[in-house]
Nucleic acid binder design. Structure first.
Lengths: 73, 73, 73, 73
DNA sequence: GTGGTCTAGACCACC
DNA sequence: GTGGTCTAGACCACT
């Protein structure tokens, strides 16, 4: 983790790793749950997820959840 | 439209009005189409739609479209 | 209040009214407090304040608060 | 810069880097100046700065300037 | 000079 | 066709 300039880059990496085995449209755990799992703050997870949405790796449906998109590599 | 300080506020109002009759998850026209319909630039429509996404009124799935969310009013 | 198409327009009106007597740079109550005072949801206040920031009537300093700006008319 | 998927992510990174040594409430250069310095368009800088404001890293006072917020790291 | 809005195009990746 | 990014200008209000 030391090699990441920002924590959220680390979180992004971990999420990418985690979802690489998942089907497209799989629902992820909530951001607060992920935060607890990684022992990291909610805001950091929020930022990481947001970036992954921008990257097209995840997509969000408000009030429903975050899902694996089709640009997972 | 004259009563709106900014065009994007006008666009927000028009979209809110338009979708008030629509079911959740209804797909909207593309942003470029909306721009043409309103005789307004694409980037301005993007800003309005983005605001409505922040408000939880719409949600976007990248490369797929923009949809009515469940926080309409 | 019936004459407002959206609640947040009503809230905007009330806030404008309230701050019209205040000095520039006066700190407002928190958005959740305002929500309770008006008996209205936090999200609605959030939206109203956001619009007033866009209008230059209020400005926000993250983690610190919302303040009366100099465009109060 | 090549390692960033989008220019605005590069700009975000550069600004984060730049302000990491600065005091809270330090005023940044104007967005057009930053754009020229980085040889990039004004609207792209605006998007990056907007993201950093959402992140709580910067805050803006309209017509006055952009400042370092207290959530720097 | 500042942030804010707006235009009228462009190219990209993906579906 | 979709959303997303980006450009290179413009005009505005206010400081």
């Amino acid at each position: 983790m030391d090699k990441f300039a920002y924590k959220y880059l680390f979180v992004e990496y971990r999420i990418r790793e985690f979802i690489s085995n998942l089907e497209v449209d799989t629902k992820l755990n909530g951001e607060r749950t992920i935060a607890k799992e990684l022992g990291i703050s909610y805001m950091t997870v929020r930022k990481a997820v947001e970036n992954l949405v921008v990257d097209g790796v995840l997509y969000k449906i408000p009030k429903r959840g975050t899902y694996v998109a089709d640009r997972v590599r």
